[in-house]
Amino acid sequence: MTTAIDLSPISGPSAWRGDELVNSTEWIYQLSDAERTELEELGRRFVADDPDLRTVTAADYPLSACVGLNEECARQMDSGRGFILVRGLHTEEYGDTLAAAIFYVMGLHLGVPMKQNEMGDVLDHVIATSNKTLDDPSALPSRVRDRLPFHSDSSDVVALMCLRAARAGGASSLVSGTTIYNEILRRRPDLAPLLFEPFHWDWYKQDHDAPAKTYESPICSYVDGIFSTYAGTSMIFSAQDYPEVPRLTEAQIELLHLYDEVAQAPGLALDMDFQPGDVQWLLNYAALHSRTGYVDFPEPQRRRHLLRLWLKRDVGRPLVEGFGKNVVTERGTEAAVAGGRFRIAEAAEPNFEWGN
């Protein structure tokens, strides 16, 4: 394994720009009638079977019509742009439980679901549960309406299904980690090597039940010619709130500010307005994600609501040791803790007692 840093621009399909993709539909996969019908049938069987979400497997719900869909999603994540949007599910007609079942079956065929909190939940929700803002240290990013900074999640793959869109705003924003790196290297080659050195990240801010306040990871990995990204500068800065964490150097601070500046540069990001039924698949090592701030409908049942999966996916990607939040574990019977939701009907309902 070679981990030497080659400070030269990275090329390939993962080095995209939003202003080059925004007027195309090449990143959208439109379901055929046969594919949609198969997913609906599998979802209904999943609801009727009511399997334990911690132990059910893809083999229990085999695909035939959707083999091509699965292969294209895998190809785009593993060796393409790093993301794909699947469109064509009629979630408004299904109800949340059936929609969640379809989403979970799709996820089983692309990886192994991972727990997303210390209760062991393997299906989580992105929905505002209070009027808190990110200025409040007790607020969780997935449970507020603020614009989020670009970041990576704690998994190989993060997937979102839109059940209901916001009244206004709430676009999903993606940006290429490869393009960010190339631009930093172009602007400040003296700072670029710092991307490959470890930083302390705020774990508590991401999960108030986390077993430690922080963890360590570099922002970039370059192993055997494969470039990967794990980012979220706000989590690095907030880790400075803990006195036991080493202070950032002036050069590190300058780099983090530059990273945010580049990520938000006009033309880099691709904004997509989620429609009900849209499913976004994203490889965390290839692209960062965010969302714009949004306004909810006044009726609670109409508020913006996304389902979220974290997947462990073996794509044969070499990474430096300790890259990302690698301590997050896969689902399993050991995740059976008080408050966890492991049946599809209960998992399809947001836990309003958590994350408020």
Rank of each mutant, 00 (worst) to 15 (best):
E92D: 14
A74E: 10
V86P: 08
D136I: 01
T179P: 12
A139Q: 09
N131V: 08
P62R: 09
L63N: 05
A74G: 05
A128W: 09
V126C: 08
A100Y: 00
E118R: 05
D60H: 10
N70C: 14
D121L: 14
K132E: 13
P141D: 09
L108A: 12
Q76L: 15
A159M: 01
P149G: 13
G88W: 02
A65H: 12
A100D: 00
N70W: 09
R145V: 08
S176T: 02
G88Q: 07
P193W: 13
D78Q: 12
D124S: 10
D124Y: 12
S154F: 10
R143P: 04
D190W: 00
G80P: 05
D78I: 06
L134I: 12
G107C: 04
S142F: 08
G80D: 10
A171T: 03
L174V: 14
A159R: 00
R188N: 01
I84G: 08
Y61D: 11
S152C: 14
T133Q: 02
V126S: 06
S176N: 10
V175T: 14
T129G: 09
I127W: 07
E92Y: 07
K132F: 10
V67W: 09
E72I: 14
Y181H: 15
M161I: 08
D78V: 04
G177D: 14
H90I: 12
T129I: 12
V157A: 02
Q76D: 15
Q116A: 00
R186V: 06
G80K: 07
R188K: 07
D96P: 11
H90F: 12
A65T: 03
R164P: 00
A99L: 10
R188W: 03
P189F: 00
M119L: 14
L185E: 03
C162M: 01
T129S: 14
L195I: 13
E72R: 15
I102S: 05
L148H: 06
C73I: 15
K115P: 04
S64F: 01
N70T: 13
E118N: 06
H109C: 09
S138G: 07
L160S: 05
Y104N: 03
Y181R: 15
Y94H: 02
A101H: 07
S79F: 10
R186P: 05
T133W: 00
P189Y: 04
Y61A: 05
T91L: 03
A166P: 04
R188L: 01
L110H: 02
